[in-house]
Simulated scan of single mutants.
Amino acid sequence: MFSSRDAFENDACPVADDLLGQMYRANPNGLSLLVANVASDDRARLALFCYKRSHLHALALAIASSCSERDLIYFGGRVGSTLYALSREPARTTAASHSHRKPITLSTKPLASFAPIVDEFDDEDVSDAVTV
């Protein structure tokens, strides 16, 4: 069995870049068709590859949902086990996951008003500047 460290040290994507791009852009139905054509070992490694990249986290969960727990643990150790558990949780909506945050409000008033800067020279400063 690989350790989690071994799984994350190998940073090569197990599928072609074109296929990864298609998966990233696919809708949920199209993604399941694309994933079905990938071998189970490569699928588990791909789920782990995507999981460590925040912008591919949702894709990792979708791919991991089609993997066996055994494959994910074999290739990812504890991370694979965690990924398996996360992929089996019910989907959270975006609104539900951010409901604990306070709403952002923007001010409609000017931030500050400043008096214009008037730059006046003293006669002394002008005479010093001319003699220098």
Rank of each mutant, 00 (worst) to 15 (best):
T108F: 11
L86Q: 02
F49N: 00
A39S: 08
F2L: 15
A115V: 11
H55D: 15
T131G: 07
P14V: 07
A112Y: 10
A115F: 06
S107E: 10
A60Y: 02
A26T: 11
S97C: 08
A39H: 05
S68E: 06
H100T: 12
I117Y: 05
R45Y: 01
D119C: 13
F8Y: 09
L34G: 02
R45L: 02
R45D: 00
R88I: 05
R78W: 00
K102Y: 13
L46F: 08
D17P: 10
A85C: 08
L106I: 13
D125L: 11
I63Y: 01
A26D: 06
L46T: 01
F2E: 05
G21Y: 04
Y74G: 03
A62E: 07
S99C: 15
S4A: 05
N27K: 09
R101H: 10
L19P: 00
S66H: 14
A91I: 09
G21C: 08
R43V: 02
A58D: 15
R92V: 05
D125R: 12
A44W: 00
K52D: 02
P116I: 14
T93I: 03
I104A: 14
D42N: 08
V130S: 04
S40I: 03
A47F: 02
E89D: 11
E89M: 12
N27T: 12
D71Y: 06
R53M: 04
P103K: 08
N29W: 14
S81H: 04
P28I: 12
N10C: 14
D18H: 08
R101P: 05
